[in-house]
Amino acid sequence: MARARSLSTHARTVLAALLEAGGAWSHGYDLARRAGIKSGTLYPLLIRLESQGYLEAEWQQPAEGGKPPRHAYRLTDEGLRLARDNPVQAAPLPSLAQASES
């Protein structure tokens, strides 16, 4: 299985945001806002994390009708270990509540 060697700041930030969500599923837009990174940075990172088994993804039906299913993400056990082993070294992330208020 894979392990961390030298994660970029963006990777650590995304992992921290996913870790903070606990076992809950996150969506791309919310994740980008919470991690404070552009979606163009986020998605390639999610693809790599998923292909290496750190992330699981599933399609979820939206609560309100007329909207398409959304792709949701959460860390696998390996991903949780990776996130814990590679904490963000800079300023702490905004909390979920703060992110939703902004």
Binding site: L7, S8, A11, R12, T41
Partner: peptide, 22 residues
């Protein structure tokens, strides 16, 4: 090693992590 895990370098945009197969 899983073929996906064998790629351990950042993408050309240089925005992504270094992950490696053990």
């Amino acid at each position: 090693a899983d073929i996906n895990a064998a790629v351990d370098e950042p993408t050309p945009t240089n925005l992504h992590p270094r992950l490696s197969a053990s």
